[in-house]
Design a protein around this nucleic acid. Structure first.
Lengths: 223, 223
DNA sequence: CGCTGCCGAATGAATGTTCATTCAGTTGTA
DNA sequence: TACAACTGAATGAACATTCATTCGGCAGCG
């Protein structure tokens, strides 16, 4: 019996069903599900796997969730909402676009880097079948990207960022680079702190790889 | 009945079974499978969907492929091998690391940009469950990334690229940015030529977003 | 306090469905 | 006729979901 629980999945209080149930059990099932999904993939996960891992009977799962898909949805939504709330608050505190991007990068990598199971689910399971989940996760995506785009936009407006590149493309590059760091970390056998690579990524994004340019922009080593 | 076939999936000649069969039918099944996988996702695709789309009987599929997973594997392997062969040849022709990266980026986006179904399969289906496919697709990944890393490495060795950033991280950023452009394109409702954004991505990667640096490195507008 | 009866959360065996896969039979060809 | 390719209905396994039953706890009562 391993420790399943980790941050990022705050108990929402009561279950989805209707009646109020045991909040601890609800959370236990959710955590177990994330662990099982991370391990075997959504479609290869059995409700009985989840129930076993949560130490409840199969039927009990249905007292808390409508079905398998709802469990995944709930896990993703809960985690994502918590992240976005946090990210917004943090970003508002900062004055310059560069600082904001730096902070976002750190928060992104730190959030997923602190919960490998959740990271696996986000990196792997979230991007299945074009229709179902992706329509849905696309909303999240857009919401997050708009934070990035806002920062880039502001930087372009004030002239600290180049204006000759489409903000959307730049934002996608930024996100894509971070996302790939997570994937790489998830698939890696090595143990390293994911958030440690955040500065390198931001650095490349802001300054590029080419020598002789405006290397080494001073940055306030946020957290 | 839509046009299924596109480039990138050269007929390997004969089927997996053993006896030699109709190569055209083999290809038809493969293309149909990619289309169905792209549409509904691997796990939601039925063999009968594939058979229907290929205009063959369910059983016929098994004359050409061992099972559903083998179809996916074959599609991915075939496409990937063709891409890698092409990419290697092209990259060898070029002298500087920057040119090589630029070319790789173009080829990457062009290959997936010319076959949306295949792109969907690569972006969505390929990254499922940590175990099965990803172990396998990780090999491909590494193979491709090593091309990128070689270019970056050389650039660092000759001093045209910064040496203060880990080559592996830089390569991941490069790949991640491109990868995200594909995902974004796949999910986008708009019709645009994916390979057109290749220059912007490479530009950010080489020169960064920050103003006042070494903007606008001349590049030979390859293809 | 001890007993009874009730409540509803929890259980897990039973159900029904959904396919992947097979194979007996058909078609087409040499 | 012999053989290969093909067909698609039949098979059976795998699972999601249901629901009749269990059982721990507690309110009410004597």
């Amino acid at each position: 019996m391993k420790q399943e629980s980790q941050p990022l999945l705050p108990a929402t209080g009561n279950a989805g069903g209707g009646t109020n149930r045991n909040a601890e059990k609800y959370q236990r099932i959710l955590d177990a599900a994330v662990a099982v999904f991370a391990d075997k993939g959504f479609f290869n996960s059995r409700i009985s796997d989840i129930a076993d891992r949560a130490n409840v009977a199969d039927g009990t799962v249905y007292l808390y969730f409508k079905n398998k898909e709802e469990i995944l949805m709930t896990a993703i939504n809960t985690a994502f909402d918590a992240f976005m709330r946090h990210a917004r608050t943090e970003v508002e505190k900062l004055a310059t676009p560069a600082e904001r991007l730096r902070r976002l990068a750190f928060l992104h990598l730190d959030a997923l880097g602190s919960n490998r199971n959740l990271a696996v689910v986000f990196q792997m399971e979230l991007r299945q079948s074009t229709r179902f989940l992706s329509e849905f996760s696309h909303h999240h995506m857009v919401e997050y990207l708009s934070l990035v785009r806002a920062a880039i936009n502001e930087g372009q407006a004030t002239g600290v960022f180049r204006r000759d590149l489409p903000e959307k493309i730049a934002a996608n590059c930024f996100f894509g680079a971070l996302d790939e760091m997570v994937t790489s970390w998830v698939l890696s056998a090595h143990e390293y702190r994911l958030s440690n690579v955040s500065d390198s990524v931001v650095d490349i994004f802001l300054n590029g790889m080419q020598s002789g340019g405006n290397q080494k922009v001073a940055y306030t080593g946020v957290q």
